[in-house]
Design a protein around this nucleic acid. Structure first.
Lengths: 214, 214
DNA sequence: CCGGCCATCGGCCGAAAGGACGATTCGCTC
DNA sequence: GAGCGAATCGTCCTTTCGGCCGATGGCCGG
């Protein structure tokens, strides 16, 4: 597993290097001190994982991430952001920029290693103290959003709702669920009753609001 | 750090127990085999962290989570879900149920320990392979959200789209915009053409995706 | 002043939606 | 084994949708 380390602080850079090189399956192939150098070396050496600090001279880590892994980049690299500062702008900036990891420097060596392994694996590890905030954003919408149905929908009815919300016709829903048109219509009848919806778009709207879609 | 372990499989339970008890700062204070026992012991012993499997007899881990940590619970406990199955319903169910951790059983002991430490700390650790999917949901809204229409919609057409997406019929749209049914249909025709939609639900879906609604 | 674009309106017609019945099968529970 | 909910399928009927015509008036820029 070949890793690039980019951090403007000498001590941090060598610290990371020592931690990682101590692992039998990890090798630090480059250690650079600014964003431009990080992008250059990343392109030249094609490491499995790039470990980028955010605050760096010339080009910051978030910009470098967008260049190496951002949307629209042909052959995106695996980037893990490592930073001291637990700021929401950094977190969202990094993850929207295509980073597959976000680590705070107070995380301890274990997580650093796990983050590198995860990234090399195509997975993503985010610092627990950051994750807990991300989860709030995930959990809150579900709480407020989407009035609960009068009665709970059955699993099958939810299948129908999901397809309806994606714009399928009854025919298509029937085909995709391997049932007849009549069955779909019957399910739809129950759904209308349970949700108090007047037409299929209201069903779709409910699905979007309650987070059933996406 | 006092931990409760709940898993219906004897081997898994003792495995977790051994891994955790090997840590100087972690002590397993209870190991139970079903959800009801988990809730009972958790309430009695008040451990710092509850490690719950999902598939358990009597009461599954997701229900137990909602009971111990769900929204509205007065003094919520720290729950980490541990499961073999990487299913989206599980992930969202757990995290919306108030879990502050989601681990796959193939994660390795390191992450298990880190997850327990994080949870005890009020943070949250999610398995990297799960995180990567959560991040897609986070990143997509900014990037992909709402493919641009072939041609831009006119202001009036957007009025129609907004009402359609809220589930109004053409009649109702006509009434609310003070125009005739024919006019609404004409606008709809243009909208269909510009968005490449096949029916009104696809129009609604586009409206939701592109943030036109809400 | 003429050509485009937009918003407005109308009619016609086939396809889809959806409401109202009834009916069967399965699995679960009492 | 009776009762029940869920899932399945069917028929008949009305309303709505959506496509395809064409038409008028207003406004703006070449």
């Amino acid at each position: 597993m070949r890793v690039l380390v980019a951090d403007d602080q000498e001590l941090v850079r060598t610290g990371f290097q020592m931690i990682l090189d101590a692992q039998p399956d990890i090798e630090v192939v480059a250690a650079v001190a600014d964003g431009v150098a990080a992008v250059e070396q990343a392109r030249r050496l094609r490491p499995d994982v790039c470990l980028l600090d955010i605050r760096m001279p010339r080009l910051d880590g978030l910009e470098a991430t967008r260049i190496l892994a951002g949307p629209g980049v042909p052959d995106p690299m695996r980037v893990v952001i490592v930073t001291t500062f637990d700021l929401d702008e950094y977190v969202y900036g990094a993850l929207r920029g295509g980073a597959c990891g976000f680590l705070l420097k107070d995380s301890g060596p274990t997580l650093l290693i796990e983050a590198v392994r995860a990234a090399a694996n195509g997975d993503a590890l985010v610092s627990p103290s950051v994750t807990v905030r991300l989860l709030e954003h995930l959990a809150r919408p579900a709480a407020v959003r989407g009035r609960p149905p009068r009665e709970p929908l059955t699993e099958r009815e939810l299948d129908v709702v999901r397809l309806i919300a994606r714009g399928r016709t009854n025919q298509e829903v029937a085909a995709e669920l391997f049932v007849s048109l009549s069955t779909v219509k019957t399910h739809l009848g129950s759904i209308f009753a349970k949700l108090g919806a007047r037409n299929r778009v209201e069903i779709a709207a409910w699905a979007w609001e309650s987070g059933l879609i996406r």
